[in-house]
Design a binder for these strands. Structure first.
Lengths: 242, 242
DNA sequence: CGCGAAATTGACAAGGGTCAATACCGGTGG
DNA sequence: CCACCGGTATTGACCCTTGTCAATTTCGCG
């Protein structure tokens, strides 16, 4: 495939981009080396601790970003403090509301997070020049829409038990760092606190905790050290997702 | 095909497109007259009764469509029959999962619906030729994503009362046929049955009914003839949305 | 007018929320 | 290495919202 060939033969790819996931699976995969060089000149890497606010709700959009490492949670809040996590983003997802004047969600670092930040103007200019980039971002947007709709089913129609199982299943697929393809089980660290999980599932901390306990007692999962989870058989977990 | 006059002055918009909302606010608004003519040759109008299946879940995608009239509900189901409405589409929304192999949702006519159906190949070809079209569709996709996330808050964090109020508020904004801009209130017919509303809100029919009754008793709405709703003061309704 | 479907209402049960007490983890300093 | 501390998670008791089941009522339509 030509993309690959170009990559191998061209030594002009910015150093920082070479090991970046966005370069391969993310939006930068559609850029020509020259474009990548031009873009890299205007980006900068940032590092954030858990809880850091990356984008504020109802704030003006001045930049976009790619998630290079870690997990970002997108949340929306009601006036009285109730919160709902409306999305989770993993590397190499794109972060930010394209073509909007202000962000509709808050983006918070759930774990340690590294971003590659792009000024708004730089990205929009590049999009205008290269339809393939918009196409790639369209694909990600469509995928996010699919995910959001899947999650609406979970929020609206599943029991607490099924919600927690669905969450663990989701994380198992995204966050097991070195899972072989055919593996039956998974091992991972939860990137979210119980409070975050509750906000993601539309439940309370207590209910999440109780359902985790039930799953543990049923032998579906093993919890060691509070955040570390082992799923011996993913099929079994999937069956509990409703 | 016989020679047709193709001079500059023959920029006639196809007759069927002239009164179509998609021509103005929908995706066709970005098309040049020639493109519109070419596209119109490959589309056809279809009419559907309430309950008709427009797109099946997990079916191959062969065509897309524009909603010309009526309300379409997008649903997802669990094996055991539980259902969740994950989106509502009004004229002149675009219908269908772009660039996907199969639909992830079922599209059902909620009311009488007229569609303008475009074969998959025709649309994808046009998109490839005209980036402005993809851009327009990107905008709609982003809007749908925003709406989906708003609704996730409703599903996950609002009470039954707030959910029903939110639903009525949503419909009031979309379905009042002739509402002046500054109007305080709204009058409309519900395009969805109680069962549909319940599936949209993640509630049961009974709970929806009870909450409607409470809103009626509180004087926030008036219900005449079962489907016909009057909201004297939209502000009041909005305040109940949480 | 009368029928079937849809909607309302009521009585009751249960799933999940609330509040409070306890246990646990991870880090700090003795 | 252990004791202590603050934040996080678990567990328990109780209650409230919403779901369930069943009986009417209303609507739409022939």
């Amino acid at each position: 495939m030509s993309e690959k060939r170009r990559d191998v033969h061209n030594s002009d790819v910015p150093i920082l981009c070479r090991s970046c996931e966005a370069r391969h699976k993310g939006m930068c995969g559609v850029l020509e080396p020259e474009e990548l060089v031009a873009l890299a000149r205007r980006t900068h890497k940032t590092r954030h601790e858990p809880g850091a606010e990356l984008i504020g709700e109802s704030t003006e959009i001045r930049s976009y970003a790619n998630v290079m490492r870690g997990v970002v949670k997108l949340t929306k809040g009601l006036e009285d403090g109730r919160q709902q996590v409306v999305g989770l983003q993993f590397a190499p997802d794109f972060l930010g509301r394209l073509f909007g004047d202000e962000s509709q969600t808050t983006a918070l670092a759930a774990s340690d997070v590294d971003l590659c930040v792009v000024p708004r103007g730089a990205l929009e200019q590049l999009i205008a020049e290269n339809p393939a980039l918009e196409h790639r971002l369209m694909q990600q947007t469509l995928r996010e829409l699919d995910e959001a709709r899947d999650w609406m089913v979970t929020l609206g129609r599943k029991t607490a038990q099924e919600k927690v199982a669905s969450f663990l299943h989701l994380i198992a697929l995204h966050a097991d760092p070195h899972r072989p393809d055919g593996a039956l089980g998974a091992v991972f660290d939860l990137p979210l606190s119980r409070a975050d999980i509750a906000d993601f599932l539309g439940l309370t901390i207590e209910t999440v905790s109780r359902q985790m306990t039930k799953l543990r007692q049923a032998g579906v999962i093993t919890i060691t050290a509070n955040r570390h989870v082992e799923v011996p058989n993913l099929r079994r977990l999937a069956d509990m997702c409703g």
